[in-house]
Design a protein around this nucleic acid. Structure first.
Lengths: 227, 227
DNA sequence: CTTCCATGTTAACAGTAAGTTTACACAAAC
DNA sequence: GTTTGTGTAAACTTACTGTTAACATGGAAG
């Protein structure tokens, strides 16, 4: 499971900030996108599904706080990290920002280096949580991402790479529904664009090879691994 | 998935800090332990296996940086979170602190409230793997938007997308009456225009599938989920 | 009792999402 | 070069969902 390029969305109404921060993050190897107000931030977030969103608080249309609160209500952004980058340095704002779901709160003016360190720290922690490299065992099925093997009742099942990745993703949170979007960005990555039926075909192959119904379709929503 | 009490180890050579920070974290529901120098910090960490370690940098025996670096080499502390809490406010220290594996870097003096917000933010992120907190449970009915499942007395009920969304909306505020307008804009969105009987039909299907009367009609007003 | 209105009920329809199959490009293995 | 396997696309089928329309019901007001 190779590390995908991480996407960062920066929302700020000052073009200078967008440019400076954007430049430095790009140099650090991140894929950077920008938005210049609250509405655009939400719109972009939905379209891009970024891994991290850096929000100014004082923005036109919607404040960063509002954007954060809105995004946090949606399952799609449950795992998305959010950093407030703002000139508001008072304690109350900071506490509120962290309480409504931000992962960090950084005061302007800030050196790009410090910001990058904080961004890196967040990603380090996030990656290290990824339940990779751990064998998943559910009932009589075992899924071992190290050996790249699936076993049912002791019988090995050979899956292709994409099939395995897809199964592993679903099985990493049994019962939880993964939206098609989520599946695409997790298994295929954000850059790749594939047709509508691609996921279905892979799902079908997995079902076929496993021989048992362990993946359930939730129509109009996504797929889940039966718990 | 019961949340177990989180352990926090605080290492600082100033007893005042230990007391103030410790008091506040205890009040917040954490289990707090202390160490007064670097060696003690490492010793305690090994014994207690805390979830979070708050480290002063300038400590006798070993500096916080050294402690952090040592702990990070050990697999046991791979997932342990570390916060530096220090009077060293220069940029270079902060960057170095974050780079050697800290999850946050907070400058003294700091208000206990802000520190607690940051601690909570870290734990929120770390826990969020297991967050089934969004499940609505009312009497013997559970509604889980993550798993997209409704359960009554342990028996699964399969609802279609719109049905589920509608039920979830009503159940999000049991007892509260939702106007037909509200329902339309929340479930269908503002752009969409649907006929008068559409909501009724969906309500009917929900009632049918659930098999029990849990939605009450308030004539001329709207619908509510029975409390 | 009758009328009226809001909601309940039912079946049918159209549109949409997913399942299925086949084909093909490409890469790795032989 | 051939073979084999993988991932994606295209085309078609299937199944179900969401919506509507038409009609039924029931209660309140007059």
């Amino acid at each position: 499971m190779e590390a995908k390029v991480k996407r960062i969305l920066i929302a700020d109404d000052e073009p200078d900030i967008l440019e400076i921060v954007g430049y430095n993050l790009t140099k650090e190897g991140y894929e950077v996108f920008t938005a210049k107000d609250g509405n655009e931030a939400i719109e972009q977030a939905k379209k891009l599904n970024p891994d991290l969103i850096i929000l100014d608080i004082m923005m036109p249309k919607k404040t960063g706080m509002e954007v954060c609160a809105i995004l946090r209500t949606q399952p799609m952004f449950e795992k998305t990290m959010i950093i407030f980058l703002t000139a508001l340095s008072d304690e109350a704002s900071q506490i509120k920002g962290l309480e409504i779901g931000a992962d960090d709160y950084v005061n302007k003016p800030i050196s790009p280096k410090v910001l990058i360190s904080r961004v890196n720290a967040l990603f380090r922690r996030a990656n290290n949580h990824a339940s990779d490299s751990k064998t998943i065992i559910i009932d009589n099925i075992s899924i071992d991402p190290v050996k790249f093997m699936v076993t049912i009742d002791g019988n090995d099942v050979v899956l292709a790479k994409k099939e395995f990745e897809l199964l592993h993703l679903l099985a990493s949170r049994p019962g939880r529904v993964f939206l098609r979007n989520e599946i695409l960005s997790q298994v295929w990555g954000n850059e790749v664009i594939v047709g509508d039926r691609t996921i279905d075909v892979h799902i079908r192959k997995i079902r076929q090879k496993m021989g048992i119904e362990c993946i359930t379709t939730v129509k109009g929503v996504g797929y889940k691994f039966d718990q």
